[in-house]
Design a protein around this nucleic acid. Structure first.
Lengths: 107, 107
DNA sequence: CAAACCGGTTTGCAATACAAACCACACTGC
DNA sequence: GCAGTGTGGTTTGTATTGCAAACCGGTTTG
């Protein structure tokens, strides 16, 4: 029944659903670890924006942030936690379900 | 290059991206026309919430709303406009691209 | 030592998702 | 006929947000 699929659409992890964070998590899922500036370049986000999204992901326990020094310049290294990895995979399932719902029963 | 796909993620129609509205539009895409209460039952949204989302979709020109009377009881009939249909299909493309991006290059 | 740059964080604000309150009208019991 | 209940919504209030601009501690450059 389509009603079920429709309800599932509403049940989405909004933390991952936000496009900026989805982009961040997609990168982190594939590269395993990335520093702040790499993420900034890849996503095209402003640094303020990127910073606050990373903080949110860290607060949710989806991303681990490690601050080190590379010689004298600070370096912020981000990686997905297990929970983040799980959340990302769940979101991927949501995407697949959404595709299915949007494609079934079209005239 | 993955950078391109990542940027595309950020370029999404937020009007459709919102889960509640995606659910509404998905229904309207398949059934062609639906009244307020049918949408309410199918989505499980509260009427206030449904009303405001419909208003927004109407404001964007994605949904046409026609108010009639069925005997003495008011009836609000909603249907996707051509623009709405286009926006929906574009969003479906976004979904496909997102799936692709989230699945490529995983280790 | 002043100015500019680097790598971010915090602040301020406009937009928005949601439910509760509200509203107009129809019907029902008394 | 008029209190009370139901129907079919809209409007209001609020807490959360995404975003960029302003800021900040340190470093390099002139």
């Amino acid at each position: 029944m389509a009603g079920e699929d429709i309800r599932n659409m509403l049940d989405v992890d909004r933390l991952v659903h936000e496009p900026a964070r989805l982009a961040i998590m997609t990168i982190l899922y594939t590269v395993e670890a990335a520093d702040f500036l790499f993420l900034k370049r890849q996503t095209g986000l402003t640094k303020g924006n990127l910073s606050s999204h990373l903080s949110r992901l860290e607060g949710a326990g989806y991303v681990a942030i490690e601050k080190t020094f590379e010689g004298k310049i600070p370096r912020t290294i981000c990686r997905l936690t297990d929970a983040g990895r799980k959340a990302f995979e769940d979101y991927r399932d949501w995407l697949k379900n959404a595709i299915k719902s949007t494609e079934s029963k079209q005239k």
